[in-house]
C-alpha cells in the first residue's frame, strides 16, 4: 500500500508515493535520482549512505522514507552553494581525502555534522567522530587532513567573503 510523503530535499519540496518498506537511501537514489548517496553495507556500519535529516547526520539505509516524511533532507548534491564548493568539499580535494570516491559523500556529510557540533576538533576527535564511516582507500590519513583544512577555513574570519 503506497504512502504519500512530502519532504524538503536540498531545499526543494518533493512529494512522492512510496511503499512503506522503501529505505530513505533508495528513495533518494531511485525516486529522486540523487545517486551521490551510496549503499556500502546492509548492517548500518559503513556510513556511505550518510545524509543530514533535520540537520543531523543519519544513515539513510537505516531509515525508512516514510520516517522522513515532513523532514528537511540534505545530501551531497545539496552541499555546494551557488556553484561554490563547501569548505569540506574543497578540503577533500586540497588534501587528497578521496581516492575511489565511493565513501566520500557519506564521509563528507558525516564531517559536516562533526564540524557543526565541534568546529575546532583535535585529530583524535576527528578520528573518533568518523567511527561510523569506513574508507578502504585512504587509510583515513588524508581524510583527517581534509577535515582539518575545512575546520580552519570555516573558522577563519569571514573577511575574505565580505570584501
Amino acid at each position: 500500500m503506497p504512502t504519500k510523503i512530502t519532504m524538503t530535499v536540498n531545499g526543494q519540496s518533493v512529494t512522492k508515493e512510496v511503499e512503506a518498506r522503501t529505505l530513505l537511501v533508495h528513495f533518494l537514489r531511485d525516486n529522486l535520482q540523487l545517486t551521490g548517496t551510496h549503499v556500502g553495507c546492509d548492517t548500518s556500519n559503513c556510513g556511505a549512505c550518510t545524509i543530514l535529516v533535520d540537520g543531523n547526520a543519519v544513515k539513510s539505509c537505516t531509515m525508512l522514507a516514510v520516517q522522513a516524511d515532513g523532514s528537511e533532507v540534505t545530501t551531497i548534491e545539496g552541499l555546494s552553494q551557488n556553484g561554490e564548493m563547501h569548505p569540506l568539499q574543497e578540503g577533500f580535494r586540497e588534501e587528497h581525502g578521496l581516492q575511489c570516491g565511493f565513501c566520500t559523500p557519506g564521509m563528507i556529510m558525516a564531517a559536516v555534522a562533526l564540524l557543526d557540533r565541534n568546529p575546532n576538533p583535535s585529530e583524535q576527535e576527528i578520528r573518533e567522530g568518523l567511527e561510523g564511516n569506513f574508507c578502504r582507500c585512504t587509510g583515513y590519513h588524508n581524510i583527517v587532513r581534509s577535515i582539518q583544512y575545512a575546520a580552519k577555513k570555516i573558522n577563519e574570519p569571514k573577511k575574505a567573503v565580505a570584501s
Binding site: G36, T37, H38, E77, M85, G101, F102, T104
Partner: peptide
C-alpha cells in the same frame, strides 16, 4: 575529484 565531491560520480 569534482564529480566525486559533488555526488556526480557514476558507478
Amino acid at each position: 575529484d569534482k564529480r566525486f565531491l559533488t555526488g556526480k560520480g557514476r558507478y
